[in-house]
Amino acid sequence: MLEIKDVDVYYGDLRALTEVSLTVNKGEIVTLIGSNGAGKSTTLRTICGFLRPASGVVRFSGQSLVTHAVHRIAEMGISMVTEEKRVFRDMTVFENLRLGAFMGKARKRKDETLDWVYKMSPVLQERSRQKAGTLSGGEQQMLLVGRALMSQPELLLLDEISFGLSPLLVKNLFKTIKEIHMSTGMTILLVEQNVHMALELADRAYVMESGAVVAEGQAADFLSSKQIKDAYFGVTTEECR
């Protein structure tokens, strides 16, 4: 469904991605893991169209994405939840969700989707008249996921959504993601600091290091791999405790 091949991305003169290649098949959950600055978020921002690859191919359902504007890529069915808590603070929870269904085909079915999102996360329904800026960090993150779901994406990109949340909230958030995946079969590409959680959720995983993909494989294999454990789990599992 999503195919990235030999993509190079620069920030000015600085090379951020080097020949990154990865694929995400329909119905899969794929995770990108790696340390800070490895290029995970850069990869997601490239898919969304915020960054233009200097060379390489980004294709979604057979169509090239590299020349399209961000909103066009969103219209093609890709939705991203960003790492900062970027809710529209001065708008209510309901208004935030409604804007999620801005695009034509999602707008037609927005009432159904809204019911579904509220069922998935009842707290959003309770707070629907509240300004989004007054929600707690965890609720804001849930709102961002809900807003992304309102657009009924075919591919959902999650960029470090657990960042800054307590372990319990992270657990709940991942449970919700899992439920979404189970009930809709939505394709998900997940970037995470919390490697353990990500690998438990995902089908497959890619490991990135200084802007390049250095390993790929089944998530379950990585979970039992000593090398990966030493490299990444040490820190993150400590932090979780």
Binding site: F50, H71, A74, T82, R86, F88, D90, L99, F102
Partner: peptide, 16 residues
Amino acid sequence: KATAQDWEAASLLGIN
């Protein structure tokens, strides 16, 4: 209104 608050987030929702 959304664009005024955060144009990147707005464009991710398909807003031109």
